[in-house]
Protein backbone atom coordinates (compact mmCIF):
# COMPACT_ATOMS: atom_id res chain seq x y z
CA UNK A 1 0.00 0.00 0.00
CA UNK A 2 2.89 2.34 0.66
CA UNK A 3 1.10 4.73 3.04
CA UNK A 4 2.73 6.47 5.97
CA UNK A 5 2.14 4.68 9.28
CA UNK A 6 -0.36 7.23 10.52
CA UNK A 7 -2.51 6.96 7.42
CA UNK A 8 -4.89 4.29 8.64
CA UNK A 9 -5.37 6.04 11.97
CA UNK A 10 -6.47 9.15 10.07
CA UNK A 11 -8.46 7.19 7.49
CA UNK A 12 -10.29 5.44 10.34
CA UNK A 13 -11.06 8.83 11.86
CA UNK A 14 -12.54 10.11 8.60
CA UNK A 15 -14.46 6.89 7.98
CA UNK A 16 -15.89 6.86 11.51
CA UNK A 17 -16.97 10.50 11.25
CA UNK A 18 -18.72 9.75 7.98
CA UNK A 19 -20.39 6.61 9.31
CA UNK A 20 -21.62 8.45 12.40
CA UNK A 21 -22.92 11.40 10.40
CA UNK A 22 -24.84 9.05 8.10
CA UNK A 23 -26.25 7.21 11.11
CA UNK A 24 -27.35 10.49 12.68
CA UNK A 25 -28.99 11.52 9.41
CA UNK A 26 -31.46 8.69 9.98
CA UNK A 27 -32.33 9.64 13.55
CA UNK A 28 -35.61 11.15 14.55
CA UNK A 29 -35.01 14.96 14.42
CA UNK A 30 -36.05 15.36 18.04
CA UNK A 31 -33.52 12.75 19.14
CA UNK A 32 -30.82 14.38 17.01
CA UNK A 33 -31.49 17.82 18.46
CA UNK A 34 -32.30 17.00 22.07
CA UNK A 35 -31.06 13.60 23.25
CA UNK A 36 -28.22 13.82 25.77
CA UNK A 37 -26.59 11.88 28.57
CA UNK A 38 -24.93 13.03 31.80
CA UNK A 39 -21.20 13.66 31.57
CA UNK A 40 -21.07 14.12 27.81
CA UNK A 41 -20.49 17.29 25.79
CA UNK A 42 -24.16 18.03 25.04
CA UNK A 43 -26.74 16.97 22.48
CA UNK A 44 -25.92 14.75 19.50
CA UNK A 45 -26.37 17.72 17.20
CA UNK A 46 -24.17 19.97 19.28
CA UNK A 47 -21.47 17.32 19.65
CA UNK A 48 -21.31 16.65 15.89
CA UNK A 49 -21.10 20.41 15.27
CA UNK A 50 -18.20 20.69 17.73
CA UNK A 51 -16.44 17.57 16.46
CA UNK A 52 -16.41 18.53 12.78
CA UNK A 53 -15.84 22.23 13.53
CA UNK A 54 -12.73 21.33 15.52
CA UNK A 55 -11.39 19.14 12.70
CA UNK A 56 -11.97 22.01 10.30
CA UNK A 57 -9.86 24.21 12.61
CA UNK A 58 -7.07 21.63 13.07
CA UNK A 59 -6.86 21.20 9.31
CA UNK A 60 -6.75 24.93 8.75
CA UNK A 61 -3.93 25.22 11.29
CA UNK A 62 -1.91 22.63 9.42
CA UNK A 63 -2.67 23.57 5.83
CA UNK A 64 -3.80 27.20 5.94
CA UNK A 65 -6.94 26.17 4.04
CA UNK A 66 -10.49 26.58 5.30
CA UNK A 67 -12.42 23.60 3.96
CA UNK A 68 -16.13 24.31 3.44
CA UNK A 69 -18.15 27.00 5.22
CA UNK A 70 -16.68 27.91 8.59
CA UNK A 71 -18.46 26.01 11.37
CA UNK A 72 -18.52 28.62 14.10
CA UNK A 73 -18.72 27.37 17.67
CA UNK A 74 -21.40 29.95 18.50
CA UNK A 75 -23.23 29.60 15.19
CA UNK A 76 -26.38 27.62 14.43
CA UNK A 77 -26.07 23.84 14.04
CA UNK A 78 -25.02 23.06 10.46
CA UNK A 79 -27.16 20.90 8.22
CA UNK A 80 -26.13 17.25 8.05
CA UNK A 81 -25.09 17.69 4.40
CA UNK A 82 -22.72 20.49 5.39
CA UNK A 83 -21.21 18.37 8.18
CA UNK A 84 -20.70 15.50 5.76
CA UNK A 85 -19.05 17.77 3.20
CA UNK A 86 -16.69 19.39 5.71
CA UNK A 87 -15.84 16.06 7.36
CA UNK A 88 -14.91 14.48 4.03
CA UNK A 89 -12.91 17.51 2.95
CA UNK A 90 -10.95 17.81 6.18
CA UNK A 91 -10.32 14.06 6.08
CA UNK A 92 -8.62 14.40 2.72
CA UNK A 93 -6.74 17.51 3.82
CA UNK A 94 -5.36 15.94 6.96
CA UNK A 95 -4.24 12.87 5.05
CA UNK A 96 -2.14 15.09 2.79
CA UNK A 97 -0.53 16.61 5.88
CA UNK A 98 0.39 13.19 7.24
CA UNK A 99 1.86 12.18 3.88
CA UNK A 100 4.03 15.22 3.42
CA UNK A 101 4.60 17.05 6.70
CA UNK A 102 7.15 16.58 9.47
CA UNK A 103 5.59 15.64 12.84
CA UNK A 104 8.29 17.69 14.55
CA UNK A 105 7.63 20.90 12.59
CA UNK A 106 6.43 23.71 14.83
CA UNK A 107 3.52 25.87 13.68
CA UNK A 108 1.84 28.98 15.04
CA UNK A 109 -1.53 28.70 16.77
CA UNK A 110 -3.59 31.62 18.02
CA UNK A 111 -2.61 34.04 20.80
CA UNK A 112 1.12 33.53 20.20
CA UNK A 113 1.03 29.83 20.99
CA UNK A 114 2.90 27.20 18.98
CA UNK A 115 2.63 23.43 18.55
CA UNK A 116 4.34 20.63 16.70
CA UNK A 117 2.41 19.09 13.81
CA UNK A 118 2.51 15.72 15.58
CA UNK A 119 0.65 16.99 18.64
CA UNK A 120 -2.11 18.47 16.48
CA UNK A 121 -2.51 15.17 14.63
CA UNK A 122 -2.63 13.28 17.94
CA UNK A 123 -5.19 15.77 19.24
CA UNK A 124 -7.33 15.37 16.13
CA UNK A 125 -7.38 11.59 16.62
CA UNK A 126 -8.05 11.84 20.36
CA UNK A 127 -10.72 14.50 19.90
CA UNK A 128 -12.54 12.56 17.19
CA UNK A 129 -12.63 9.34 19.19
CA UNK A 130 -13.63 11.19 22.36
CA UNK A 131 -16.65 12.95 20.90
CA UNK A 132 -17.79 10.00 18.77
CA UNK A 133 -17.72 7.97 21.99
CA UNK A 134 -19.83 10.62 23.70
CA UNK A 135 -22.39 10.35 20.90
CA UNK A 136 -22.46 6.56 21.13
CA UNK A 137 -22.88 6.96 24.90
CA UNK A 138 -25.90 9.23 24.31
CA UNK A 139 -27.34 6.75 21.81
CA UNK A 140 -26.86 3.84 24.22
CA UNK A 141 -28.35 5.78 27.11
CA UNK A 142 -31.43 6.46 24.99
CA UNK A 143 -31.89 2.84 23.96
CA UNK A 144 -30.52 3.24 20.44
CA UNK A 145 -27.90 0.72 19.29
CA UNK A 146 -24.95 2.81 18.06
CA UNK A 147 -23.26 2.08 14.73
CA UNK A 148 -19.98 0.14 14.86
CA UNK A 149 -17.17 2.72 14.73
CA UNK A 150 -14.11 0.79 15.91
CA UNK A 151 -11.03 0.24 13.78
CA UNK A 152 -12.14 -3.39 13.48
CA UNK A 153 -15.33 -2.10 11.83
CA UNK A 154 -13.21 0.16 9.60
CA UNK A 155 -11.06 -2.83 8.62
CA UNK A 156 -14.14 -4.82 7.66
CA UNK A 157 -15.72 -1.91 5.78
CA UNK A 158 -12.56 -1.39 3.73
CA UNK A 159 -11.94 -5.16 3.37
CA UNK A 160 -8.47 -4.67 4.87
CA UNK A 161 -9.21 -7.02 7.73
CA UNK A 162 -11.77 -9.45 9.07
CA UNK A 163 -10.90 -8.65 12.67
CA UNK A 164 -13.76 -8.38 15.13
CA UNK A 165 -14.21 -7.07 18.64
Amino acid sequence: MGERPLDHVLRHNTWANGALIEFCRGLDPATHASAASPGTYGTIEGTLHHLIGAEQWYTQLLTGDLIGPRLRRDGPPPAIDVLAEVAAGTGNGILSVAETDDPGRRIKLNEGRTSTVGVILAQLVHHGNEHRTQITTILGANGIEPPPLSAWAYGRATTLSEGTE
Partner: peptide
Protein backbone atom coordinates in the same frame (compact mmCIF):
# COMPACT_ATOMS: atom_id res chain seq x y z
CA UNK B 1 -7.74 -13.99 13.97
CA UNK B 2 -5.21 -12.78 11.41
CA UNK B 3 -5.18 -9.01 11.01
CA UNK B 4 -2.77 -6.51 9.41
CA UNK B 5 -0.55 -4.70 11.93
CA UNK B 6 -1.79 -1.32 10.68
CA UNK B 7 -5.39 -2.17 11.60
CA UNK B 8 -4.39 -3.59 14.98
CA UNK B 9 -2.49 -0.39 15.80
CA UNK B 10 -5.38 1.77 14.64
CA UNK B 11 -7.73 -0.23 16.86
CA UNK B 12 -5.31 0.06 19.78
CA UNK B 13 -5.34 3.86 19.52
CA UNK B 14 -9.11 4.04 18.97
CA UNK B 15 -9.80 1.72 21.89
CA UNK B 16 -7.74 3.76 24.33
CA UNK B 17 -9.41 7.01 23.34
CA UNK B 18 -12.86 5.42 23.46
CA UNK B 19 -12.64 4.05 26.97
CA UNK B 20 -10.84 7.08 28.36
CA UNK B 21 -13.73 9.15 26.98
CA UNK B 22 -16.20 6.86 28.75
CA UNK B 23 -14.32 7.38 32.01
CA UNK B 24 -14.51 11.13 31.40
CA UNK B 25 -18.28 10.85 30.93
CA UNK B 26 -18.69 8.87 34.16
CA UNK B 27 -16.65 11.41 36.10
CA UNK B 28 -18.57 14.31 34.58
Amino acid sequence: QRVPMEILLTQHLHHGNEHRAQLGSIFG
